[in-house]
């Protein structure tokens, strides 16, 4: 058998392209796409809410401060805040300077930026 006919045989063999059976693969991909769509929708919703909260905070800081103070008083958040700070003594001095609205705005900004990063 000469070289050319060997290559012809090889070409013919290669041309019979191998195809892998589905065996539920398409369904798995469909489920993953569905799941990723749900996650993206939720992340988008959270981002929107966080931005809305930020707009509210910066649009009317005084009103938000009053709201937070009322909320803190009613839920006794002050104790939780102090407890959380006591767990991180090194941070407590610097964080103690922050007011509730500043801290809340910081947390909301962080959440917004994080969820935008996840979306991207």
């Amino acid at each position: 058998m000469n070289d050319n006919s060997d290559f012809d045989q090889l070409d013919a063999l290669l041309a019979q392209s191998a195809v892998i059976a589905d065996r539920g693969f398409s369904e798995r991909v469909k489920q993953r796409i569905g799941k990723s769509n749900t996650i993206r929708r939720n992340v988008f919703l959270i981002t929107g809410l966080c931005w809305l909260a930020l707009v509210l905070i910066f649009a009317s800081p005084q009103a938000i401060y009053t709201d937070f103070s009322t909320l803190a008083l009613s839920l006794d958040i002050g104790n939780i805040y102090s407890y959380a700070l006591s767990q991180f003594p090194s941070l407590s001095d610097s964080v103690r300077q922050l007011s509730y609205p500043t801290l809340a705005a910081g947390l909301v900004s962080l959440a917004a930026v994080t969820s935008m990063a996840v979306r991207a």
Binding site: S17, A18, V19, I20, F25, S26, K30, I33
Partner: peptide
């Protein structure tokens, strides 16, 4: 459309996976 894309997956998965 997830269903339309799934049909495309079914069409092409055999070759892509191979």
């Amino acid at each position: 459309d997830n269903d339309a894309f799934s049909a495309l997956v079914r069409m092409h998965q055999g070759k892509i996976r191979a």
